[in-house]
Amino acid sequence: MENSRRSFLKLAGISAIGLGTKPVLDAFASSEAHGEKHGPEIFPNQEALTAKRWAMVIDTRKFESEADLDPIIEACNKIHNVPKFKEKRHEIDWIWVDEFKHVFTDLEHEFVDDRLKHLPFLVLCNHCENPACVRACPTKATFQREDGIVLMDFHRCIGCRFCMAACPYGSRSFNFRDPRPFIKEENKAFPTRMKGVVEKCNFCAERLAVGKMPACVEASNGAIVVGDLHDPDSEVRELLKNNYTIRRKTHLGAGPAIYYIV
């Protein structure tokens, strides 16, 4: 408890520096200029990356083997303090790999081509348009932002795991025990979690907020691209226009925001 509070404060402090300093000055400046008094206002960080609807395109043609994917997964794990357990049962995954037949259960068939059959695919939270996890959560600890990113409030989550049953993609993990002793190298800029709460990929919301691309994107040598689905000129739209893409379990109507070029 102590620990998580501290990390949370740390994060809050950092975001305050990122989000706060300049806008606070702006607020002062503007109130002086107009000569009227008003309460504190919150302005978004000017550097923040924003979108109407975030989406990700993964170009699987640029990957050959798991060795290409490991650095990407490592980058995410490191930045987000994802623990590594010996016990399979306690495993926590934000982004991981699986085979075509497991990732695209409804597209799989016996004669799928050799490349796809053996290619490892990245899997992560789909930041669904209609997220079943958000619907299920009884405390709004899991919620969807206006830009489509599905986030978790680790301090509100009661650990009922209804969201895990609801997610049709198996994207969520639960802290079956205190994760902290199992974090190789703690990133002080991101909160560690405590036992008994659920977690998952957060689309690097904390990085977008300070103008950085998600960690996986940075580590992917251009194979992963994120951008605004509602902006016809965005890079993701460009990729979607020119390539055939697939998404996971589209028949469920969840509207996954992760697109795969195969």
């Binding site: 016990e87 399979k88 049962r89 306690h90 495993e91 926590i92 995954d93 650990g159 795991r161 895990m164 049953a165 198996g170 969520r172 993990s173 639960f174 802290n175 079956f176 025990r177 205190d178 036992k195 008994g196």
Partner: peptide, 15 residues
Amino acid sequence: SFGLGITGMSRDVSW
């Protein structure tokens, strides 16, 4: 004190 890790549940069978 330990967490639900003392049970047989996992991220696959979460209930």
